[in-house]
Nucleic acid binder design. Structure first.
Lengths: 198, 198, 198, 198
DNA sequence: CATGAATGAGGGTTCATTCAT
DNA sequence: TATGAATGAACCCTCATTCAT
């Protein structure tokens, strides 16, 4: 079972699923995009579902790896937030299709138990961050799940607007967006944020 | 063409498309959900694509109608924002399936020109609001498209977290979320927001 | 669901399965033989397996009906045997494909519970006959299952030889065969059988 | 071409074809059962058809060899019959899968000319026996093909009933079956058979 | 107008066969 | 010689769509 072929299939699948969704993408089309025969994907994956699951896992793990590698857990909450946010931007800038794929398939019914567990495992450090930050009275007194959703949603929505051409990406835009995101989650009543680390 | 039958089909389609997506939903299943014969949808809509487009239009127009009916354009920017945000919450609370449907089918390739135009038309008043608010130095100096994306993304992401059971909905949560959203878009350097809910 | 279409499919299936076996017969080929579209069989039968099962049931019930209708249960054992045997011959002479189909699929793993029950129900009167005949000391002291197998096997093997052209069918041949079959199962030690009913 | 590998493939094929039939058995499954690579069977046999044909030939020749080796052609007809019948029982008792395989594939369309000739060659001595026995007025005045079919059918049907668990095998059962078979084919009007087992 | 049986192209998947190693 | 990854035709089945009723 040659790993290159398997990877070619996963690479092609990322694009095809991102563009047309799970049900809209056909296995023959996917195989053609990968440059292999119609039956070849089935030598590497038991079924279409198993293939999406493998792809989801690979993509999510790449994302989490990029976000958390050598993460500066000792930095201030504000700094950690900034690093996290810009890593998010950097990751998807390098792999635009990964964003569409992950968003398109977020929490869909065909994800297997492994992927649901991975989902939870991926979220954990972020939730822990917001838990700590709330106890440190740095962020709002809201459930960590809410703050996580807020930051991701803000980022994802901007990203989509850019991909659709409604918005021109720029370093400045992302810098502003990061500030917006921080303002959304930080404790509100501590006066103007001098962009300081508290 | 009896309008009741047409509406029954659209109502059923909303649920079916929201649950399974466009490609995942079959016309026979849709017809059965609507309580009509398998061929009946084709007496009201030329094709499956025409049906989603009609449904998208109906849903989007209902949303915009609910958001903008008797809108208090004379109120302060802060107040207008609040009204808008809570109307958003109220609309989808009444029709949860509409949220999934709109999100799932946002900018899909099968949407027709009319719907793309509707999309633009719907966005216009919101963009205009952020344009005015920026000139009034109430909101950040960012493109209106960015601020619009930020607010919608924040709202949508929270909504999804709730629907997935990751978060318990409550009036308090939404009040906090509205404050977050405002903090995300308001001008940061004007001290504590005198109108803020705190 | 029009019954004529359903019957056309079953009729065609009998020939196709008889000729090529279950796995050797393809649903498209079967549909074409029935003169219907490739998808039409699936409007009447859930799957290929469900189709064979329905066909098996129909065929077996037709056979049992033909064998047992107005059966002369009051006649002597010898006479009952003769009637049974010639009805067997007559039934398959009228529907040669039914023989191949039933033999080909005898007790195969895709038969469902209903058909296994039908199998048992069909065998029951024959077993009962041999039970009675043994107690009346008319037939050999062997298990009814063995005598049933012997008679059917003798008949079936001759039938196959005829279908393969190894043997020319004739009324005389079948009369002799019936005598052979009776001699195989009758009590051996009661002297020459004067073809009498004793 | 190592003969052991070839034999391993044939041995595995016997089991696989016997269990699932020709069309129901896949070459990869067969190769795995033989403990060889998926491509290896093709180094010994041109195709799946060539493989069944080789297997059929091997199996049939083994059967005929076992039946006819040192056959007591000088014994009485009755004794020859007995020997033949019990050799049949003995052969299949030693190789139960061979029975299913031969029966399953009896005269199927994929048998090649060689096998059809082999079929005829195998039958010849049996037909000759019945020819002689008829002229000696020992057996019924029926075509040898009919008597052959009768004996084989009787045996095969009992064998199937046993394999399906409808009947318990025993030496006594086979002794009775042999007597049945002889009674089926012997001349009826010559009084109690002086050589019969009773 | 509504129906639902029928259609057949196309979907996911298998498997007989090939061929580079 | 044996392997097993790769192939692609063909399988079973679904479903968007049509049309006779």
């Amino acid at each position: 079972m040659s790993a290159p072929t398997r990877d070619a299939i996963l690479d092609a699948a990322l694009g095809v699923f991102a563009e047309r969704g799970f049900h809209g993408a056909s296995m023959p089309a996917l195989a053609e995009a990968a440059g292999v025969g119609a039956g070849t994907p089935y030598r590497h994956f038991e079924s279409k579902e198993a293939l999406v699951n493998a792809l989801y896992r690979r993509t999510k793990e790449a994302l989490m790896g990029a976000l958390l590698a050598d993460f500066p857990f000792d930095a201030t909450e504000r700094e950690q937030f900034r690093v996290f946010f810009f890593r998010l931007v950097g990751f998807f800038r390098a792999r635009p299709e990964a964003f569409d794929f992950l968003e398109l398939h977020h929490h869909q019914p065909y994800l297997d138990a492994d992927n649901l567990a991975l989902e939870a495992r991926s979220l954990a450090p972020v939730l822990a961050y917001f838990e700590r930050a709330r106890r440190a009275r740095v962020t709002r007194a809201m459930p960590p799940e809410a703050l996580t959703a807020i930051v991701w949603g803000l980022f994802a929505s901007l990203w989509k607007a850019i991909r659709l051409g409604h918005l021109a990406p720029s370093d400045e835009l992302w810098a502003q967006a990061e500030a917006c995101a921080w303002d959304a989650v930080r404790r509100p009543d501590d006066g103007p944020d001098p962009e300081s680390d508290r």
